[in-house]
Design a protein around this nucleic acid. Structure first.
Lengths: 141, 141
DNA sequence: GTTCCTGCAAAAGCTTTGCAGAAGA
DNA sequence: TCTTCTGCAAAGCTTTTGCAGGAAC
C-alpha cells in the first residue's frame, strides 16, 4: 500500500494523516510480525531524529479506536499490535515463539447463552507447535 | 471447590499449596469476572494484613505456567486472568464492558497454512453488544 | 487563523528483583 | 532440617499527563 493510499485510509476514518501516523501504520502493514510498542519505536526512531515514544502510544491508540489495527496478547502479558484488522487466526508456537497468521472458515455454534447478543467481531487464537517445531520435537523423543 | 480440593489440584501440578496460592486460585474460581492483578490484590488484602502484590504476581505466574488459569486481553491493553482453563469463549460487550463466558461447538476449517501444525489449545473471543445493551441501543435510535 | 498533533520532561503506575525471615515438606 | 515461598523495599520498566511549539487544514 502506498503512502497516498495509507493517508487516504486514515482520512476516511477522520484521522489526520500526519507523517508519524502514516509511518507507524505503514510499519504495521509491512511487518506482520505483531510488533510491540518498543519494536515500532526502535525501528522508526533512526529515520526520524525527534520521533517520540509518546507519539507511538498516541498513534496506536487512535488506530485501535478506529478499528484499523488490533491488539493481541500472545504469550505472557506482553501486548502486541497487528496491522491486519481483517478476521484471521493467530497461531502461536510455544517452542519458537513465532506467530503465524492463518485464514479459516469457522462454524460457531454458540450455546443459548449468547442468544440476543450482537457479535461484531471475532478473534481466534491457536497455540501449540508449528510445523518445524513439531518435527524437531518428534526427533528428540 | 473446597480448600482441600484446591490444595489437591495444586499438588498434582507440583505446586506447593500455600495459604496465599490457595486464596488466589480460589478467588479466580469463585469470581468468573476475569479480574486484574490489582482487583485480586485489593479483594484479598483486607483478610490478610501482610498479603503482598508480589505474591499475587508470583502466584499468577505459577498458575499460568501450570495451565490452571489463563491470561486474557479483553479491551485496550489491560491483562486480566481467568480461573476457567477449559476451552470456552469470551464475549466482551463494548457498551457495558462486561465479560460473558460461553460454551461453543467449533468447526474450524483452517487453511493449508496450518498443515503439519499441532494445535494444543484454542481461544475464541467475540466482541459486540450483549443482550441488554443491544436492546438499549435499539431504543436509542 | 484555528484546530489538532507532536515530543519533551516529569509524574504515575505497573512489574520485577534481591534478600531476610517464615512456612511447608 | 532443607527447600521453597512470602513480603518488604528498591529498582527498572512502561504508560500517561501537561504543555509549548509545530504541523495540518
Amino acid at each position: 500500500m502506498s503512502i497516498e493510499q495509507i493517508a487516504g485510509r486514515l482520512k476516511i476514518h477522520d484521522i489526520r494523516p500526519t507523517q508519524q501516523r502514516i509511518k507507524v501504520y505503514e510499519y504495521l502493514l509491512k511487518h506482520p510480525t505483531h510488533p510491540s510498542v518498543d519494536t515500532i519505536y526502535t525501528a522508526l526512531s533512526p529515520e526520524y531524529p525527534t520521533f517520540s515514544k509518546t507519539t507511538v502510544y498516541n498513534t496506536l491508540d487512535v488506530l485501535l479506536k478506529a478499528g484499523l489495527i488490533r491488539a493481541v496478547l500472545l504469550s505472557g502479558n506482553e501486548v502486541r499490535y497487528d496491522g491486519n484488522a481483517n478476521e484471521h487466526g493467530h497461531f502461536f508456537c510455544r517452542r519458537c515463539s513465532e506467530v503465524y497468521d492463518f485464514e479459516y472458515v469457522l462454524g460457531v455454534t454458540a450455546s443459548e447463552e449468547l442468544e440476543g447478543f450482537q457479535t461484531e467481531r471475532r478473534d481466534l487464537y491457536q497455540f501449540g507447535l508449528c510445523r518445524t517445531c513439531a518435527k524437531e520435537e518428534e526427533k528428540a523423543i
